[in-house]
Write a protein that binds this DNA or RNA. Structure first.
Length: 571
RNA sequence: CGGGAUGUGGCGCAGUUUGGCUAGCGCGCUUGCCUUGGGAGCAAGAGGCCGGGGGUUCAAAUCCCUCCAUCCCGACCA
């Protein structure tokens, strides 16, 4: 490709709207342009990258027996009503009507369509397992699209759905996808980590997220530093062993009230009373659709709202406002406690139950209770793990102190079980003529998000550094002086030779000064740059520059194609 | 959805407080000269219903009302 003919509108300055580095660089390097909030046009370079990622995904899906199909973006409301998700999905679902007033939506995911397809076309155990996938645009009307391609409203996703006879079959399909995903992200040249995750509203038991490790990631991950243990989980899901606060050996003392004027934070109370935060029981009131709930965690802990939501089995969970707190506890915010609290469900974290002679709010202004003993002074309705794990907590398997990192979720694999096959009636006849629901799994990869994640992880102050496997071109050939015919002809020869040998090469034939072309080459992130200047013409040696390291090397003219091909093959 | 901010040529911005006559600057773009190994220089150009609508006024980018868009923080979602 001749750069003079290529639509790569590079920008010298960072567009004001871009905050994260992948968004800035993809705009500046001429890969993407915004059409609306969270909706982008992919220019030629971006589209080449996307096609490469898609191709890697295709090969790995096919390797595991996946069959590619293409399902519609526009889906009839009836399907979603049948699964029950038309009402549940909420405002995230892009809804529209046709000219007859019939309801449709733009697919945010395709469980309904694919399950109904399989319901109609598959009826025998002989046809299972079946792995169907597509690479398709997806639509989610995010409340707040942000970070460029990392959280858009329209995005490209690979989604595969597995249909098995039973749980054992599902386990196998799940394992295949786990391997396939590991291969996909490895081949894309990304540093990533599969982590245990929460299954959220989709439900199901097992689920893993594949996280590309990057500071800008929205997800927080904890992991065990012991490689042989290998535990890693999204903090939403992460567990840790129950820890004693050091009060266990004490003998319970009689409950006592203390005057604590103006002390309503954990720091204030611990400072005032001269006790460890671990001795406090923090009482947080939450509003849910099932009423107000009190969540108890130790003073040094935070509530994990995802865990709490799961324990309570509620759809809505938010901290109660001050007025509600006062109504329930009879005191201003800061003095809530479990003792004598009426009309709310009490959920206590496991660690709270181990405390002896704890400190809590007294449900009265400026008053706390000391020597509170769980079981004696209050009895929670539920005891569960609702605490947020943090770095330093012991690994639940081996006890080593956990570490923290941030990640971008580029893939997630789910065991769905019979959730959709039951409601949508996707059944098959087994070898005994018995009708059974198919056992399903679903597996997604955010393709456009993966492109952005690759940039987040691979860049420097000059621009993008594409992993070779997904780079838009492998190499750019740059004649230094566009008016020097000898340079230009040599560059042209090299360009053609590389083209003829199957190398993805761009020739920067623009009548620009060398500096401009070098800057653009760095910004765009071609893995290799071949510079053709005076030296090349005179000595017949070409300068090859490696984007990843910034190193250069002189390569004899006749060896250039071999050198480039070797580099690509080894990458 | 709550809070905050911003909309002026392709990009980055000034001008708005205190209304005023041809709306500016840098980059980019076009043409010419010159230059040619890290975003050169000189000269001449093209390009803007100042986000939309309504109002106030002799006069609105500037003041008022309203709508829209975009970005950030939070909440939310997977």
């Amino acid at each position: 490709m001749r750069v003079s003919q290529l639509l790569v509108p590079t920008l010298r300055e960072v567009p004001a709207e871009a905050e994260v580095i992948s968004h800035q660089l993809l705009l500046r390097a001429g890969f993407i342009r915004k059409a609306a909030a969270g909706v982008y046009t992919f220019l030629p370079l971006a589209w080449r990258v996307i096609k490469k990622i898609e191709q890697i995904i295709r090969e790995e899906m096919d390797r595991q027996g996946g069959q590619e199909i293409l399902m519609p973006i526009i889906q009839p409301a009836e399907l979603w009503q049948e699964s029950g998700r038309w009402d549940v999905y909420g405002p995230e679902l892009f809804r529209l009507k046709d000219r007859h007033g019939r309801d449709f939506c733009l697919g945010p995911t395709h469980e309904e369509i694919v399950t109904v397809l399989v319901r109609q076309e598959v009826s025998s155990y002989r046809q299972l397992p079946l792995l169907l996938y597509q690479i398709q645009n997806k639509y989610r009307d995010e409340r707040r699209p942000r970070f460029g391609l990392l959280r858009g409203r329209e995005f490209i996703m690979k989604d595969l759905y597995s249909f098995d006879r039973d749980e054992a079959g599902l386990d196998q399909s799940y394992q295949k996808m786990y391997e396939a995903y590991t291969r996909v992200f490895t081949r894309c040249g990304l540093k990533f980590r599969p982590v245990e995750a929460d299954s959220g509203a989709i439900g199901g038991n097992d689920t893993h997220e594949f996280m590309v490790l990057a500071e800008s990631g929205e997800a927080l991950v904890v992991f065990c530093p012991d490689e042989s243990c290998g535990y890693a989980a999204n903090v939403e899901r992460a567990a840790t062993t129950v820890q004693d606060a050091g009060t266990r050996e004490e003998l319970p003392r009689p409950l006592e009230e203390v005057h604590t004027p103006g002390m309503h934070t954990v720091e204030q109370v611990t400072g005032f009373l001269g006790v460890d935060a671990r001795r406090l029981i923090k009482t947080l009131l939450y509003q849910t659709e099932k009423g107000v709930v009190a969540a108890l965690v130790r003073g040094d802990r935070e509530v994990n709202e995802v865990k709490l939501q799961k324990v309570l089995d509620v759809l809505r969970l938010e901290l109660a406002d001050g007025a509600t707190v006062e109504r329930i506890t009879g005191a201003v915010v800061g003095y809530a406690g479990p003792v004598g609290l009426q009309d709310v469900r009490l959920v206590a974290d496991e660690e709270v139950m181990l405390l002896v002679n704890a400190v809590t709010g007294a449900n009265r202004d400026d008053t706390h209770l000391i020597n509170v003993n769980p079981g004696r002074d209050f009895v929670p309705h539920v005891v569960a793990d609702i605490r947020q794990v943090r770095a330093g907590d012991p690994c639940p398997y081996c006890g080593a102190p956990l570490e923290e990192t941030r990640g971008i979720e580029v893939g997630q694999i789910f065991k769905l079980g019979d959730k959709y096959s039951r409601v949508l009636g996707a059944t098959y006849l087994d070898e005994h003529g018995q009708s059974r629901p198919m056992i399903m799994g679903c597996y997604g990869i955010g393709v456009t998000r993966t492109m952005a994640a690759a940039v987040e992880q691979n860049h420097d102050e000059n621009g993008i550094i594409w992993p070779v496997s997904i780079a838009p071109f492998h190499v750019v050939v740059v004649p230094v002086n566009h008016k020097d015919e000898r340079q230009f002809n040599l560059a042209e020869q090299v360009y053609r030779e590389l083209l003829d040998n199957g190398v993805e090469v761009a020739l920067d034939d623009r009548p620009e000064r060398a500096g401009v072309k070098f800057k653009d080459a760095d910004l765009i992130g071609y893995p290799l740059r071949i510079t053709v200047g005076n030296q090349a013409v005179q000595t017949n040696e070409l300068e090859v520059r490696y984007r990843a390291t910034g190193e250069t090397r002189m390569v004899p003219r006749e060896r250039i194609t071999g050198h480039v091909r070797e580099y690509i093959a080894l990458a």
